[in-house]
């Protein structure tokens, strides 16, 4: 198999066959997933959203075996439900079948958050332009994913929408380039930004409202194996009708905020502390309050120069 064969080289029939049988093996950043599912919505979404991802085989080392399966029992005829499995284990309660793809995405995040303790994992978006990277931690009300999608559509390379992977030894940021999960109004705002956006199915009535996934740019996926030095941590906050305001944050506060946003700081113990210390030491820390798209894009544009 040529080294850089992507999913787009397979037709729908072949993708569906692999998902149904032994599993479709994809490189997702530093991880390799084997995905199985017989659900048509998984086939459609995976084909569309993961088109640029590198195809691997069962002869490669695989990190995670994930599947989405219909639940058994009589109830499935009235109200079909699905479960996420990480190998034999199902960590979540079942969801309505319409939410299959969001559940797969969520489950893949879960696998990484539970098992990738060779990274410090932060709940944040990460983007890069001209070698300058920004970590955008996801505090509630930050509008992180919308901001992330805006930047990704304006020349920033997407490293991750959900998770910063910080190498414990080198302190470098590693990329995932996974789809960006958008909710409710954000979906419209982002589709209006560009004609080139590709979205997955729009799923209504999840416990987070309406969800759809934005396909990551081909360039972001092509460069997924390139790590980058952390340059800045910016704590965003969306505030209606506010002019843009950027403040430097003192580093002790930033340190504590980073910990709060980490998935595995507690588990990592000393290694976690040392990595956060090294990270804080080498980045600028800012808080950003914004409402206008133009203003916030202009700010980041300047930041990258």
């Amino acid at each position: 198999m040529p080294k850089n064969q992507t999913l787009s080289s397979l037709n729908t029939h072949e993708i569906s066959k692999r998902l149904n049988k032994d599993g479709l093996v994809l490189a997702v950043g530093p991880f390799t997933f084997c995905i199985k599912s017989s659900l048509p919505s998984i086939v459609n979404n995976v084909q569309k959203i993961y088109a640029d991802f590198q195809l691997l085989s069962h002869d490669d080392l695989i990190d995670f075996y994930v599947s989405i399966k219909k639940t058994k029992g009589i109830r499935r005829f009235i109200k079909p439900q699905i479960n996420f499995y990480s190998d034999d284990y199902s960590p979540f309660l079942p969801l309505p079948a319409s939410q299959a793809f969001p559940l797969l995405e969520w489950g893949m995040n879960w696998c990484i958050a539970q098992h990738a303790h060779h990274y410090l994992l932060l709940h944040s978006a990460v983007l890069e332009k001209n070698g300058k990277s920004v970590i955008l931690p996801a505090q509630s009300g930050s509008g992180k994913s919308t901001l992330c999608a805006l930047l990704a559509l304006n020349g920033w390379r997407l490293l991750s929408d959900e998770m910063a992977l910080i190498d414990l030894k080198s302190c470098q940021l590693h990329a995932l380039a996974r789809p960006i999960s958008l909710k409710n109004e954000s979906i419209k705002v982002i589709s209006a930004q560009s004609h080139n956006t590709v979205f997955g199915e729009i799923v209504d009535d999840t416990n987070k409202g309406t969800i759809s996934h934005l396909k990551p740019s081909t360039v972001s996926v092509e460069y997924v194996a390139e790590p980058v030095r952390p340059f800045a941590i910016i704590f965003p906050k969306y505030q209606v009708n506010q002019a843009i305001n950027v403040q430097e944050t003192d580093k002790a506060t930033a340190f504590m905020s980073v910990i709060e946003n980490s998935f595995n700081y507690a588990v990592l113990a000393e290694a976690g502390f040392n990595t956060v210390a090294a990270l804080i030491d080498q980045v600028q820390c800012h808080t950003l309050t914004y409402s206008s798209t133009e203003e916030v894009l202009a700010f980041f544009e300047e930041f990258a120069h």
Binding site: D250, A252, A269, E270, A277, I280
Partner: peptide, 14 residues
């Protein structure tokens, strides 16, 4: 373990 900043210090207790 500790990390010293201008006004505060972050202390980790293993």
């Amino acid at each position: 373990l500790h990390e010293y900043f201008s006004e505060q210090v972050i202390v980790f207790d293993p």
